[in-house]
Design a protein around this nucleic acid. Structure first.
Length: 110
DNA sequence: AACATGACAGGTC
DNA sequence: CGACCTGCCATGT
């Protein structure tokens, strides 16, 4: 199989480091991977996540602290349930900042 | 090679 | 806080 970009592997590796009971943002994961501004790639990597691999994809949410999956088709509820079963609390569909694994500090090298 | 897409983020209004 | 626009960059057609 064509070894997809190592980027995905790196991303999955970082996502695996998000402790249970905590969450991280796409941008944050990208930053820790050493690829600032590749937030969309993180989403892409998780979307292409093969079944069976041990990656807590549900712990990654967007910068607004919300789930980035469509409410239709049960996708949204599925992720929410997984997080709640790990102790994550939602306040008006948002995860409190105190539950973030890493501070969402931004790096603006520009 | 050109163009469209996306599980995003940041800034503006 | 919400709606909108712009920047990003790997992927797929």
């Amino acid at each position: 199989m064509k070894r997809q970009s190592d980027l995905y592997g790196t991303i999955w590796k970082i996502v695996r480091r998000i402790p249970k009971g905590k969450v991280a943002t796409y941008g944050g994961v990208a930053r820790l991977c050493g690829f600032p501004r590749h937030a969309r790639l993180v989403g892409y990597a998780l979307h292409n996540l093969p079944h069976g691999v041990d990656v807590p994809w549900q712990r990654v949410i967007n910068s607004q602290g919300k789930i980035s999956l469509p409410r239709s088709n049960g996708q949204y509820q599925r992720q929410k349930s997984l997080l709640e079963s790990e102790g994550i609390v939602f306040v008006r569909d948002r995860v409190p900042l105190r539950l973030y694994a890493w501070s969402g500090k931004k790096v603006r090298p520009k």
